[in-house]
Amino acid sequence: MKIAVASGKGGTGKTTIAVSLALSLADQADVWLMDCDVEAPNAHLFLNPPLDKQTDAVIHIPQIDTEKCTLCGKCVEVCQFHALAKVGKSILVFPQLCHGCGSCTLNCPEKAIREIPNPIGLLEAGTTDSGIHFAHGMLTISEPMSTPIIRQLKQWEHPPQDAVIILDAPPGASCSVVETLHGVDFALLVTEPTPFGLHDLKQMVGIVEDMDIPAGIVINREDGSFPPLNDYCRENSLPVMLHIPYERRIAEGIARGDNLTEIHPKYLAALRKVFDDIKQIIHDQNQAAEKKV
């Protein structure tokens, strides 16, 4: 089962929920945690896994064989990303613009292009003391493209069928979030009772509806001061699966690197209940789908 933890707005508590959920299930399931926020990955700071397995995340970029190249410019013409340019008597490659689509290679009439791996980040993995299989991606500073790293991270390891896979998503609502959500069974959307939290939650709900992924809500820093969030969840039949109150000691604990179950043991049971509820929602949805067929 794959569960993504996402939010739209940054800093609402995605990583806190993802890590705490993983730890609360570690005794009862084969738990995998993949931190897909490759621009600003933080889950490892809370889990301290040994990162003993590493590999490069790469994009395959063109390399021009100058012996064979006749400077016809076909590669420059077909590249939609302006990653190739003809300058004087050579073809220049701009690796940071290349999406690795292979159009240039395929269209070169002289077969003068071969593709070489260009590292844009690092994948790291290791198993924690509590038995959680952890993996994350880390975009190299000054590289622009995070989505290919997320794609490679998700394909890197092969968890067994019955594993519980938790994906910690990046903030925002664009391609990197969609890449993280691709193929998940459930999205747990973490928000906060503020206009910013609600505005960005609505965008996330739009995405999960578009992708046909069932979703539930976690309201973090709840203090009862912003009813529009609760109204929105109710009106859109979004189940609120967990409320975490606005408490200074929780904020201080997270700041230090503690997870929710360390800050208050009651969250162990609360998060297991969230997981059971998620299973129930997926089960009900599958049955409803079967009936339709």
Partner: peptide, 10 residues
């Protein structure tokens, strides 16, 4: 700006 260090930030 955006959070992160990727394309929109650059």
């Amino acid at each position: 700006g955006s959070p992160g260090i990727g394309c929109p930030v650059i």
